[in-house]
Design a protein around this nucleic acid. Sequence first.
DNA 1: ATCATTGCAAAGCCTTTGCACGCGC
DNA 2: GCGCGTGCAAAGGCTTTGCAATGAT
Lengths: 127, 127
Amino acid sequence: MKWTQQRLAVLEALWAAKDHITSEDLANQLASEGKRVGLATVYRNLKLLVDAGLARELHLGDQIVRYERNDGQTHHDHLICESCGETIEFCDHEIESLQEDLAKQYGFSLTGHRMYLYGICGNCRKQ
Amino acid sequence: MKWTQQRLAVLEALWAAKDHITSEDLANQLASEGKRVGLATVYRNLKLLVDAGLARELHLGDQIVRYERNDGQTHHDHLICESCGETIEFCDHEIESLQEDLAKQYGFSLTGHRMYLYGICGNCRKQ
DNA sequence: ATCATTGCAAAGCCTTTGCACGCGC
DNA sequence: GCGCGTGCAAAGGCTTTGCAATGAT
């Protein structure tokens, strides 16, 4: 894997993004920084970064694919405000242990999971 | 909402499908039964059925949108075998109650969730 | 009779691919 | 210099839409 400046730029943008980001937004972000990286290259590199374990692909429930950095350690799930779109990342070991139990009941060995909680955040409820 | 024969056909096919089904598969299924329903009509009706609460749209983690019947009562989550694709539906109140707690901790009022557990089923592990 | 619904084909959107050029090693 | 990586534009899937014709009530 060659570390071309485009690939680095994609990685850095992904690392800098506070929220989960779409391919297009990432490309726009790069463009706004004056870095010209073709959209196809963004797509290609996001895929590669996922394969390399440096990024993670998210499907939050709509059809839009988003990416986030993957530092390889912080597994987490998502709590999403349906009103303002704020997303909170969390990790709950108690739930995860129940998931393990449940899979075992069905004879499955668990390899992973995705959990998305949807709700209305405190701020939005006040308005 | 008019109950045209096409709409009924889509609904019936969805009801009959044992597994979660894609728009295209559903269209093929109809075609194989000799019912000629345009693909656009399938798409339009699946959307409408979701709005009407008769169907549910699933995003199992790939980019493929699948549908399942929604009888309005049986909320459930999915346990998916990554090897053979078998999916098991389950509902675990203990996990759901923990989800509620967790949302509350973050000031959210929970409106829903999606949970997908991925693993290898007993059969596939034997092979 | 009226208006929602359909079918078809065209258009849209996002994503991937082919190919010649350029850059990292 | 070699070969991977890039950019561009074209092609690909899947989904939606425009429009005239059809069908449900």
